[in-house]
């Protein structure tokens, strides 16, 4: 393998029913930085049925070139077809770096493509960088249940591939004036030759939580003790027009459903404000919220590790602080909105 032949940074763009997943756009943002450092093109890889027009959107998010394969057999994701189509593209155009969203299908595809073209794949990364001197891709990921971070390198094989967790990279602002080009490829697998069929796609009824979209989250941990304590968390959340969330211990105590759990085995959230009440700051929790814009922690233990992840910390008893904070906040907000002071103490 002559690794010099491999050029360009590629991003797999996952879509369903023609709707592009955010993670693809987030990766165009991250990929742009990598491509600029290496002084190469940033390319999107877009597969589907009737999706060619979507290329326009990808330019706006930073793609220079979009490889498109538009074919009815690619309408829904299937390993069988996507692996072949993407594998062919890689063999033909030889990218240097290729990243995929670490979604169910993204991981499935990347693993199959890595085997197909015999290269290395780093899983579930949260940090991407380039060692310019060695022109090497440095993909880092949490491992061993989040207890450690590891940088994985792929020295002698190309492309250097990684899956990247959704919501970790920032989605760039679209630039409507950016233009690019499409390279369209043919694909000749036939439906009747395939061994798998998508019978039906069932969308889960949206559960109330929708944490991943929330702009403000107030989360409670074991420190709030029980349902009564959690009521106090809810009151603050209501005052702030926020969504509630919880650590795993609170979910396991049955105080709130799993769809509200933040962390490694829950959701990754990136709100503008995250208030952590009585949460110790275990890595498994922190990986799920550390990229929030503003983190405020309330804990009675001055050495709680949550204070390492937070921007502002209050050391003290949540049962004293939180109700006071709720009232104080309501007053300040009412004042701000010029409605005069309304309290319902």
């Amino acid at each position: 393998m002559n690794i010099e032949e491999y050029k360009g940074v590629w991003v797999f763009i996952e879509q369903r029913d023609g709707e592009i997943f955010d993670v693809g756009l987030e990766l165009l943002g991250a990929g742009r930085d990598l491509a600029d450092k290496l002084e190469v093109e940033l390319c999107g890889v877009l597969l589907g049925d009737g999706i060619k027009d979507k290329a326009e959107e990808l330019y706006q998010y930073g793609a220079d070139t979009v490889y498109v394969i538009d074919n009815p057999v690619l309408k829904h994701y299937r390993s069988e077809t996507y692996m072949k189509a993407v594998g062919d593209l890689v063999r033909k155009y030889k990218p240097e770096i290729f990243v995929y969203g670490a979604t169910a299908n993204g991981k499935d595809l990347a693993s199959a493509v890595a085997t197909e073209v015999m290269t290395g794949l780093t899983a579930d990364t949260t940090m991407l960088d380039i060692d310019l001197e060695k022109r090497m891709f440095e993909a880092s990921r949490p491992a061993f249940g989040g207890n450690i971070m590891a940088t994985i390198l792929c020295k002698k094989h190309r492309p250097q591939m990684a899956t990247v967790r959704p919501k970790v990279m920032q989605k760039p602002e679209p630039d409507p004036s950016r233009k690019g080009k499409v390279i369209e490829e043919k694909f000749d697998m036939k439906e009747e030759d395939l061994r798998t069929k998508v019978v039906e796609i069932v969308k889960a009824a949206k559960k109330g939580a929708n944490l991943e979209e929330a702009e403000i989250i107030v989360a409670g941990g074991k420190g709030i003790k029980d349902e009564k304590g959690f009521k106090m968390v809810k009151d603050l959340a209501d005052a702030m027009n926020a969504t509630v969330a919880a650590s795993r211990d609170v979910v396991e105590a049955g105080i709130i459903g799993h769809e509200y759990q933040v962390g490694q085995t829950g959701l990754t959230v990136t709100p503008k404000i995250y208030v952590a009440i009585g949460i110790s700051g275990a890595v498994q929790h922190v990986v799920g919220m550390q990229n929030s814009e503003l983190i405020i922690a309330i804990n009675n233990d001055p050495d709680a590790t949550i204070f390492n992840a937070a921007h502002y910390g209050i050391v003290g008893d949540a049962f004293e602080i939180v109700p006071m904070l709720t009232e104080e906040f309501k007053n300040a907000l009412a004042e701000e909105q010029g409605k005069g002071v309304t309290t319902n103490a």
């Binding site: 290269t119 780093t122 440095e138 971070m149 590891a150 994985i152 390198l153 792929c154 094989h157």
Partner: peptide, 8 residues
């Protein structure tokens, strides 16, 4: 093809 570089 992959090797674990740094751990921290």
């Amino acid at each position: 093809p992959t090797i674990v570089g740094r751990m921290w």
